[in-house]
């Protein structure tokens, strides 16, 4: 059974009804086509209605939707001749970050992304997409292959955050993130960053430096989780909805603050309702960005990238 969110119930209900009618129609040998068509129209109206009035918190729920496509799904649909590469050559291979090389439109891309894992066992193996320092070090190592062999880079961001654990601290979680930010800024090939789900603070930013930063329509990107913010500001996690509004973490918010360059549309009903279509839209965005970036000389690319981040923020000068 696919899981669904509370606000999706009317959509799921209609979908089930349509399926029932379709079965009945086949059994009867036809006659219900008009009825089915009516329901389909109603479904798209209801979906439109629901999705055009989502609260920020509902968008968080979509970003965390258990059926939302993950990095491995995007890789499967977008990249051909995919080869996954493993390990940071220092300590371990961290399965919460996937890295490798694949082809899109005849161009080989280095691809790096968080991977949450689909089923329980896989989620545990992938630590729910929360990397340790070795994950970030693997990401940087593989991105540097891009720099050496002149391959453009795509990163997919979808993490609750960097893992807060003893081993992570012992091996320098903060250091790994800091070094990634600094060094990725200097990689002399186009870097396209796509926030596909949860952009969880520093754990996201560690692979979030690039020349184009795109966000899927229902992805979120935040300095702290709504729950974390609620427990600090409101002293209770149950104020997570208020915290979500206050933090301004939706794609629309981030576009307004000039943190992201563009918003990638999602299929009606969200990326989880149609992985393939979601992936197509992401693939198109990657190619659009690549075509904008491919002819920029490396020096200029790096300089513009640094300038991009150096301008972020709001303050007043007296």
């Amino acid at each position: 059974m696919p899981k669904y969110l509370d606000f999706e119930k009317p959509i799921i209900g209609l979908k089930e009804k349509i399926e029932e009618l379709k079965t009945l129609n086949t059994d009867r040998g036809g006659g219900l086509e008009d009825e089915i068509e009516k329901l389909k129209v109603r479904l798209s109206k209801v979906r439109e209605e629901i999705f055009s009035n989502l609260t920020s918190w509902e968008q968080v729920e979509l970003a965390r939707h258990p059926n939302r496509p993950y990095t491995n799904d995007y890789i499967k649909y977008i990249f051909k001749d995919w080869v996954e590469l493993h390990g940071d050559r220092r300590f371990a291979d961290d399965p919460s970050i996937v890295a490798g090389i694949g082809k899109l439109n005849g161009i080989s891309f280095v691809v790096v992304g968080h991977e949450k894992g689909r089923k329980t066992k896989e989620k545990i193996r992938r630590n729910f997409g929360m990397p340790h320092p070795e994950g970030y070090r693997k990401a940087l190592r593989v991105m540097k292959l891009g720099s050496k062999f002149k391959l453009p880079i795509v990163t997919f961001i979808d993490t609750p955050g960097a893992y807060p654990g003893i081993g992570a601290e012992e091996r320098g979680q903060a250091l790994a993130i800091a070094e990634n930010i600094k060094e990725i800024a200097m990689i002399p090939v186009p870097i396209i960053v796509i926030i596909t789900g949860e952009g969880g603070s520093g754990g996201a930013l560690a692979i979030g430096i690039g020349d184009r930063i795109y966000m899927q329509k229902y992805a979120v990107y935040s300095v702290i989780s709504p729950e974390g913010c609620a427990s600090i500001i409101w002293r209770d996690q149950k104020y997570k909805k208020e915290a979500t509004e206050a933090l301004k973490i939706t794609a629309k918010d981030l576009k307004k603050f000039n943190i992201i360059d563009d918003i990638i549309m999602e299929p009606g009903g969200g990326a989880h309702s149609n992985h393939k279509e979601a992936a197509n839209l992401v693939g198109e965005a990657v190619m659009k960005a690549y075509n904008e970036l491919k002819d920029i000389p490396a020096d200029e690319l790096i300089q513009k990238r640094s300038e991009k981040f150096s301008k972020m923020g709001f303050f007043k000068e007296l």
């Binding site: 520093g202 935040s222 300095v223 913010c229 933090l247 301004k248 918010d253 972020m312």
Partner: peptide
């Protein structure tokens, strides 16, 4: 990072680390 400035605070990490 300062929560009250949200994502803008997070981006100060990028601003400072890349400046180095």
């Amino acid at each position: 990072a300062r929560m009250h400035e949200g994502i803008l605070s997070l981006m100060q990490m990028a601003k400072t680390a890349t400046a180095l």
